[in-house]
Design a binder for these strands. Sequence first.
DNA 1: TCTGGGGTCCTAGGACCC
DNA 2: TCTGGGGTCCTAGGACCC
Length: 370
Amino acid sequence: MPFYLHIDMDSFYVSVERVLDPSLAGKPVMVGGAGRGVVTSASYEARQYGVRSAMPGFQARRLCPDGIFVPGRLGVYSEFSRKVFDLLRSFSPDVRAFSIDEGLVNLTGTERLMGHPVRTAHEIIGRIGSELGLPSSGGVATHPTLAKIAATAVKPRGLLYVPPGSEERFLGPLDVSVIPGIGPKTHRGLADRGIATVAQLLAHPRLGPRYLNLDRPAGSGRAHEHSVGSETTLAQPLTDPAAMERVLGGLVEDVAVRLRRRKGRTRRVTVKIRYSDFKTITRSRTLKAPTCFDVDIFKVARELLSTNLAPGRPVRLLGVSTSGITTEGWQDSIFDYRERASMDQLYEGIDRLRRKYGEGTVSLGAGKSR
DNA sequence: TCTGGGGTCCTAGGACCC
DNA sequence: TCTGGGGTCCTAGGACCC
């Protein structure tokens, strides 16, 4: 019998902040939400006021004026995340990280060594708490999706076991929104057709399997296409194309450095423009040959920006994204092998300088303005 | 003192090819 | 002197997730 444990950290960023500053315990704490930002993590005390993650900061401050707002420290959270996953991997070789604070442990076949999966789940959650000081929730079930739904259902500080054979009894009465992939829009659409519970959804011959297919074995999804992008909401909306190009240059630089760090080359460049009325457009172009160089990406990005920008209309966000990324070598373009090789050396040097002396040290002609 | 930033996946039309 | 048709790539938009 397959057994999966889905681990979901409880208000992860806030919990890490509390480990580092115990005086935050028991208080309404929010990470993020400064200025134009949104709340990225809210303590359960803050949620009592109606604060949710992804909520705009101004709204959170209105709902919870006495709350404590902490700026996020992604590097610190990543470090704690690594420790959590190290611990998970000491229980099973098959661990999948879904995000910084969510992971799946395959406990199939561990019974003889470690006892029943529920016992193991208890121990894992206990050790995340005792060794790292972090609260978490877990779901144990015969299917990964089911385990995730179970974990979400018992948050915070809960563990829920869905025994084999009781899957439909557990899921049936729940609201369809518990299913990953069903967001507000789909939820409304289903409600319009009179579908509110999972049981009603599963009874539908076409829609049921589309949104929840527990027969499909784990990990049978398609191989996903990787992308690397960077975007920024501007401190002040811009109307000056030259100023926008400078921002674009900074974004391109950021993207290209990350692309090279993972030894990737992109086949596609996408520019994103969000006007101050929130109308958002994306314009992309597929390249003839994959590249990881700032100059190549910037050339395309600048062109996409200049040919699609509505003149005089204030822009609040600019973004650059690269996709269709390949990590294959450059042997496929033999004719310019030598040129590319020397470009690689040049950029390696630039990246080294940037690492050593800071991001602003070396920049493109277009300059950087972030 | 309006609404982040990192992503993945899906749909759908048109081009293009055989 | 009505509309083939299937596969794949390109592009834009949008839903959704953390």
